[in-house]
Design a protein around this nucleic acid. Sequence first.
DNA 1: CATAGCATTTGAACATCGTTCAAGTGCTGG
DNA 2: CCAGCACTTGAACGATGTTCAAATGCTATG
Lengths: 234, 234
Amino acid sequence: MPRDTLSRDQILRAAVELLDAEGLEGLNMRALGQRLGSAATAVYWHVGSKDNLVALAGDLAWNEIDLPEVTPGTWRPAATALATGLYGMLCRHPWVLQAFGTFLLVGPGKARYDDRSLAVYEEAGFPGTQADQAAAAVFTFVLGNALGASAAAAVRRRLAREGESAEAQLKEAMAKAVEYASAYPRLRPRLDTASSGYAASPEQTFELGLAAVLDGLAGRLGADQPSNGSRTPL
Amino acid sequence: MPRDTLSRDQILRAAVELLDAEGLEGLNMRALGQRLGSAATAVYWHVGSKDNLVALAGDLAWNEIDLPEVTPGTWRPAATALATGLYGMLCRHPWVLQAFGTFLLVGPGKARYDDRSLAVYEEAGFPGTQADQAAAAVFTFVLGNALGASAAAAVRRRLAREGESAEAQLKEAMAKAVEYASAYPRLRPRLDTASSGYAASPEQTFELGLAAVLDGLAGRLGADQPSNGSRTPL
DNA sequence: CATAGCATTTGAACATCGTTCAAGTGCTGG
DNA sequence: CCAGCACTTGAACGATGTTCAAATGCTATG
């Protein structure tokens, strides 16, 4: 190991820092090289390509989530912990959402992301339900919710950072909404409330939504029932 | 209007075709120009920039969703219709997710997307609840779920298109999951089921999940109750 | 201790892509 | 018929991901 040699870990740490600070479009190989005090192209020897670099950085971020201990027979605490962990990670590293977007939850290339969580969920269990469907539903929806909530948080942060211009934009959008809503009398007071800034914090929204989703999943999946689940019509 | 002149609509249609066929990274100005039978740079006069082009294409896709008729007093059919519409649109145009990812649900720049749906939801109403929080929750979670489910569908389509190699990748990932799960005895049979291909269709999963989410939201938001909603602990 | 070999870095160079710009082209209204 | 404007064109620039041959310097072997 020569003296001034890059290491994969070093590169990944710098990449994550850059991604956290500048976002996905702020990461380019030359900037990364400069931050590392070496030529841009030196990075290639260690990570192969930018795509792979981002994938590895994504691994690092994902591994920040500490997977919950699973108590047999109860799935809700584990599901809550996992969703909360994902939510927190996505708030800390919004670029993960941007980079993996579609494939974060279900992508085959990065499927091992999923496998560990899937294992947790499977172990947490929805006893008596068809496992694949239950797992898919939990996975898609509980984690999808974390995703949506963290997106909301990211937008709010962006609003805060970009300051007035963005806020004005939002006001304008709200005004349009009010105009559109003129045909709906009951809607007005609600929009007035909403337009006086976001009232609920993203965390509140996240927790409320997660609780609601878990309520619903418990009702649908908790009991032993046929997989077509014809309990309540849509 | 000269004879062989581009129109904004024409450009947007071509862009959407290209995006549908090749994905977000398949769209570049020169390819678009070629498809239109004109120079790449001619497009700029009509749409200004690529970012704006994608935004406009996104508008087009979004407008494919026919917003539900709202029957006062019942919100569930409207919520279902909107989520289903969004789900369908995202399945037809997966690039929308890729392009707008974070900001699809809540972004201020494209907030007018949201406003129309928000109006529907607000009108659909969760009588007695704090409107902003309810609206935020519904918006984030119901639509977030559509997002998650359509992502799953997109991955499945990609698996189908890329054929064996991707399928092998998935098998491998599943094998890893099984190995990881060796410590969890109850998990094995479920993974076996899951690894024999995706058992449930994305549509089934989407419908099941949506129903569950709406169940949960109904329980949390339907009744007049304090907004801290201390009904069921997480 | 010297030297061969390998790991690692470097800078130049290329292709692609978004974008700009000055110069054209052709319709349209006076 | 002509001036002006809407629109198009091709060349060119800067940024970026990536490749490659050459250089550098450590390490292990004779």
